[in-house]
Every structure is written in C-alpha cells, then in structure tokens.
Design a protein around this nucleic acid. Structure first.
Length: 264
DNA sequence: AATCCCACCAACCGCCACCTC
DNA sequence: CGAGGTGGCGGTTGGTGGGAT
C-alpha cells in the first residue's frame, strides 16, 4: 500500500501528487527549496515521516513530510545522519585498517568500501579518508585521480533487504530497524535513542523482538569527548602506531609496495 | 582581544545507470 | 525502443570551530 493511501481524506485532497505532472513537480522542487544545515525540527519531521510511512519516493516525500527540501537532500540526510543504524564517533583501528585495505583494493569506490563497514556511510568514509588518511599517508594526486568507473550491479533481493527495511511498500510495518543484525538483543546507542523517540511519539513499531536489549555502543558523544590521541604518532584515533609492533604507516607502505599497486 | 588560518564534515552538485511509462 | 524520472555515487564546497599569531 502506498503511504498516501493511508492519509486522511483531507490530506488526499491536498495531495496534488496524483494530478501534478511530473515535470511541473520536478521544476517546483528545484526552486524555493531550503538549503544548508538541517534544523532539529526538520530532522524530526523527516524521521517521523519515514518511521510512519517508510521510504517510498524521495522526490515526493518531502512534500508530504512538510519539508521544503529536495528529495535528494532528504535522502542524503537520512542516509548519512538520521538512519537508526548509522554509527557515529571516531573510527576504530579495525575500521581504519579496513578503509585502507579496501582503498587499495577498490580505489575511490566509497560506497563499496562503506558496505564493508556496517554503520559507516560512504560520505563519512570519504571525508575520513580525505581529512586523515590521505594526509597521514602522504598520498598525492588523489584529488586528481581519475574517477573510477562506476560498476552498478543489478541488485538482488537480498542486497535490497537492508535498504528496504524502512520502505516495505506492501506491509504496514513501520520499521524493523537492522534486520541484518544477527543478535536482536543487541542494539546500538542510536537505535536505543530512536526507540525512545518512537515510544515517545506513540508510533507502533513491529517485529522488534527485543526482550532485554543490550546497548552495544556507548554514547558516541561521550566516546568523542574521551578520545585521546596517540602521543607517538599524533594520530587522533586509538594508537595505530602500536599495531603489531610496527609503525602503522610504515606497515602500510610495506604492504603497499608488496602489492605493487599503482592506483595513484 | 582580534584576526587569520586550517581542519573537519555536512551538504550540495553533476553525472550516470536503472527504471517506468 | 526512447524519453523522462529517480536513486545512487563521487567530487566539491562552504560553514564552523579551534588553534596560532
């Protein structure tokens, strides 16, 4: 069932989507749209709307959610910030390693790299790489690196499952949270926070199946504040230079040379 | 105290592949 | 089959905060 079918009759009258030509709506979206940082109110509107109706069409959703934003902007905000399974806070040593290894393997295919880091977004990884790793690794000409040809695979059902958990068009389920998570008793700080919001808004959440949830992560804000950089390498993440007794970046160089990669 | 500089990162933009009509 | 719409991706920008001068 499409979300608008669940709207009240009054809302349906206002719903011009069904009669408005696509082009006209598209043009309307590109003008008079708010840009820049999202306010907490906008966040709440988008979050509440998606929790209620799921993701059905990014282009048309903002209108129904009461947002003067483009669909793209809403999508980006949701994917990179509001999504309950988005992991916040500093990268762990393991994540740094995965990013570096994945970059060697995949190049600047940030979305592909992000798939290897559950909870991290492509944007976050990209920013992290450009602000930390590129400089720390002394990489040059990364900015002028040729754009990697995008390889878009036809998505199978399983791959789609993760992105569609909020957009189950055929069911009235609101949100299953992370259906990929094996242990349903483990939730993240964000999920815990989300659940609080959900319960406070009296939104029905189906299929939670969490009896005694355990918060997997500590409050990212606390983590952020308590993070102490390594005194040896000036790296602000947890002691990479202590890894395997080798200088972290020397280790990377060795690996790099060994594989004779010429990405840059 | 004021100004400048720089790092960080959220958000925007343009492009492209896929989908739908 | 083609045109237009949509979503996803990577590059880039600009606002902000903190440190240096």
């Amino acid at each position: 069932m499409f979300p608008q079918q669940r709207l009240k009759s009054v809302e349906l009258v206002v719903n011009l989507f069904t009669i408005m030509p696509r082009v006209q709506l598209h043009q309307q979206q590109s003008t008079n749209m708010k840009k820049g940082a999202w306010s907490p109110e906008e966040d709440q509107k988008l979050k509440s709307y998606i929790m209620k109706f799921g993701i059905w069409n990014w282009s048309h959703m903002p209108k129904f959610a009461g947002l003067s934003r483009t669909g793209k902007s809403c999508r980006l905000r949701w994917m990179n910030y509001l999504r309950p399974d988005v992991k916040r806070g500093p990268f762990t040593m393991e994540e740094v390693e995965i990013v570096i290894k994945s970059y060697q393997e995949l190049g600047n295919r940030w979305s592909a790299i992000a798939k290897r880091l559950p909870g991290r977004t492509d944007n976050e990884i990209k920013n992290f790489f450009h602000t930390h790793l590129k400089k720390q690794l002394g990489l040059k000409n990364v900015g002028s690196m040729k754009r990697t040809k995008r390889v878009v695979m036809k998505k199978d059902k399983d791959e789609n499952e993760m992105t569609n958990i909020y957009a189950d068009k055929s069911s009235t389920n609101v949100c299953n949270f992370s259906s990929e998570r094996i242990n349903a008793n483990i939730i993240t700080w964000e999920e815990n926070e989300m659940r609080d919001i959900v319960s406070s808004n009296n939104i029905v959440v189906d299929d939670m199946e969490i009896k005694e949830p355990v918060i997997l992560e500590s409050n990212p804000e606390i983590e952020k504040n308590s993070n102490v950089g390594c005194h040896l390498c000036q790296f602000e993440y947890p002691h990479p230079c202590t890894l395997s007794g080798l200088d972290f970046f020397h280790q990377f160089d060795v690996l790099w040379d060994a594989q004779h990669l010429a990405i840059f």
